[in-house]
Simulated assay, not measured.
Amino acid sequence: MEDKNTPVCQFNYEQFLSHALQNKVDFSDVIRELFTTNQDPDFYTGAMHSLSISYSDTDNIVRLIKVAQRHGIYNLDVILPYALEERQIQIIQDECQCRVENKVDYQDKLIVTLYDKTQA
């Protein structure tokens, strides 16, 4: 369950894949477009340098979560073009030591809750 007092950063992975595959716009513009929060510009830069269409979905999401962790983001929603399999979610949780909930509404979404390692 996310902390209601902590802002949620939302990343649209579906749009990332679509824009990156079309290769019609500058990659840094794509990354800025996909975040719906007022995060530190270093966060955008970290994500921009970490994600690639040559990586698997699982690897990209692990990379995105690790960037979020480095920037003190504790609640991250990742909009997906399709649901991830349970084994992918388990890999993400194990790699990032976070809680991941796969939510399917009108759109597939991962709700990621990161733990503050300074509080552990």
Rank of each mutant, 00 (worst) to 15 (best):
V104D: 10
M48L: 15
P81V: 06
K103A: 08
K66D: 01
V104Y: 06
Q97G: 00
I61C: 06
Y44E: 06
N75V: 05
I61E: 03
Q90A: 14
R32F: 10
N23V: 00
E101P: 00
N60S: 03
G46H: 08
H19Y: 15
F16W: 13
D116S: 04
I79M: 06
G72Q: 03
G46M: 07
N75S: 14
K24F: 07
E101G: 07
E33F: 05
R32I: 13
N5H: 13
T58D: 06
A83Y: 01
V100S: 04
Q10R: 14
Q10P: 00
F43S: 06
Q119D: 04
I91P: 00
Q22R: 12
E85A: 14
S56R: 07
H71V: 02
H71Q: 04
C9A: 09
V104I: 13
I111L: 14
Y74E: 03
D42E: 13
V8S: 09
N23P: 02
E86D: 12
V100L: 08
L110Y: 01
L64W: 07
K66E: 03
M48H: 13
N23M: 05
Q10M: 12
S56I: 03
V100I: 12
K117M: 00
E14N: 14
A83L: 09
Y106V: 11
V30S: 05
I92S: 01
F43I: 08
I31A: 04
Q119S: 04
A83W: 00
